[in-house]
Design a protein around this nucleic acid. Structure first.
Lengths: 206, 206
DNA sequence: GTGGTAACAAATGACATTTTTTGTTATTTG
DNA sequence: CAAATAACAAAAAATGTCATTTGTTACCAC
């Protein structure tokens, strides 16, 4: 009874603390078994207060997903904005996404599931993520076209081609379906598939 | 009370009749709401008798799925065995699969769902279907390599590339995810993506 | 006014009970 | 003996009840 308030005066802001606890809960027990009441209890507050930070359970799930998605997106952006040839950047972006997804699938299956669900249901958070990645790829594509590195007549079609040809390696649902294929094999196939697609982009006739 | 036995002396054999009734049930109410008892009732027999033809409900579902899968596979085989250039045959096979899947998704979503589930769960029936398609594609690939139409050093890798690059258009789960994208658009993207992949196969460096 | 609690109706989940379904086997029918 | 039924145990699903959770709001303290 020496500590009626076990919650330390954490340096993080309250919403981040809730987010962390929720993520941990999902990691350990899965999304299905998470309740706002339990998270509030762990955070040492009334459950009603949690709603001051997250308007609903779904919003909390979205925030947990988003928190993981952010580094994936910033990796993309960093690669896209680096002063490297567009050709290399495009390859790096796609491979980076594939690696990030697969990492999460293996290290945090439950949270990856959350992301997949969001994706399958066409939730806003998943759509926005997709849009942000798309816009980074588009930038690199345009940059490469301007620099004469890519021979692209129709930007829209080229963008679609990138997503179509690399779909197996960029779609969370696909990656989850391949969870039993050894990782090394999928990585190799991703590399080869992307490299060939890039060759198409480089050598025109899109 | 004039017809205590409404079941006509159908020309089909009993197992086909059961299969048809089951498929119809799935079509109308979805797989979740199908019961062996209900199918037996519709077939005008005791439910125990259905087990003489199908050892379990799953087996019945598999049979329903398989019945639809057969024409897809025989289309593939017919294309593969035709006396046409390997290049064209490969294109036709992939496009044909994509069209068949998408047709089924639109005309018979519930049965397509059955197939997707089988696929996601890695059931034998789905794996065999995949293997059969794979072997047809492999044949065409080998034929094209022998005839000098494709420049392929590593058959295994080439086969993987075909499946990877066309994944979005050959995986039932992916196709279902794209159900809201207009069909015409997906068809066009499939055609272009496949055509570009074929160009890679033709112009070597795999 | 930021960070919190208390109280509350509506929605959800958990649980015991009953009914249906599944799958097997012994028995009947023709 | 081939084809079907009837009877049955085990598993699964539906039902109804009751506790918990959700989402809101009004209110308190600093």
């Amino acid at each position: 009874m020496s500590e009626p308030k076990p919650a330390p005066p954490s340096a993080e802001s309250v919403d981040l603390r809730i987010l962390d606890l929720a993520a941990d809960h999902v990691r350990r027990f899965g999304a299905a078994r998470l309740t706002i009441v339990a998270v509030a209890r762990e955070a040492g507050m009334s459950h009603g207060n949690v709603y001051r930070y997250f308007p609903s359970k779904e919003a909390l799930f979205d925030a947990v997903t988003e928190q993981w998605l952010k580094p994936v997106e910033s990796d993309c952006r960093r690669i896209a904005e680096a002063p490297d040839p567009a050709f290399d950047k495009l390859e790096r972006i796609i491979v980076s996404i594939h690696r990030s997804y697969r990492d999460k699938l293996e290290s945090d299956a439950e949270i990856f599931d959350l992301f997949c669900r969001s994706f399958e249901e066409g939730r806003t958070i998943a759509r926005k993520h997709r849009t942000r990645i798309q816009s980074e790829i588009q930038k690199v594509l345009e940059e490469g076209t301007g620099g004469g590195m890519f021979e692209i007549a129709d930007q829209r079609r080229a963008l679609a081609l990138v997503f179509d040809a690399a779909y197996r390696f960029m779609s969370p649902v696909s990656i989850r379906l391949d969870r039993n294929v050894p990782r090394g094999q999928m990585d190799g196939r991703c590399d080869r598939c992307v490299r060939l697609m890039l060759r198409i982009l480089a050598s025109g006739k899109i």
